[in-house]
Amino acid sequence: MLTIALPTGRMLDRCCLILKDLGLPSEKLEQRGRSLVIEEEGTRYLLAKPMDLPAYVHYGAADMAFAGSDVIRERGGSLVEIADTGEGRCRLVVAGPAELAERFMGHESGLMGLRIATKYPGITNAYFGSRGIQPEIVTLHGSIEIAPLLGLSDCILDIVQTGSTLKANRLSVLEDVASVSLRIVASRKSIQTKWDQLNRILFRLRHMKGGYSHGHALPTENR
């Protein structure tokens, strides 16, 4: 049985659509109610908080998961990223009041001690740390955009899709950190033990209209 961990929240419906397109069972999943474990025609779905998905796969509780590349980068784990679905595209950026732009354009020493509100403390540390900048990180779990307005931080590191929330809170993008999209990750063990099943999924992903994956390279469905 293939165990797939899916994110609760707004991405779940998109995941259901992808699963359907991939020919995986999704009927019970669409009528899930409050169940967090759903078994359907040889597939078990686990519904979990997006931030917890990498851990499910890392510890082998799930064979694979649909997780955002931001979450994968933040939470880490020994995972194999097997495909980029191309869904949920957005950007991970540093944003702040326009007057801060000058500091970002100047020497990096000017950013030392910068106070950054984020729900991605790991990424923030790594991003600024790799440039020798030691920021002060304020970890929040939501409504990050209001932190500079309230004097809680100088700027934020967060995901942005259209930029309208940033604009509404008088923030602008100061630096691009990474592009984000919904990825499929698998456990190192499942890659070895369930490769045929995973390869079939990747094959279908490649051949779907519009193409969810980069996947040039998966030449045959079955060996």
């Binding site: 020994s78 194999v80 990223e81 097997i82 495909a83 190192r188 994956s213 980069h214 996947g215 390279a217």
Partner: peptide, 10 residues
Amino acid sequence: GALSDYFSVL
């Protein structure tokens, strides 16, 4: 373990 990057780079 970034297979998707591997294929994308190729």
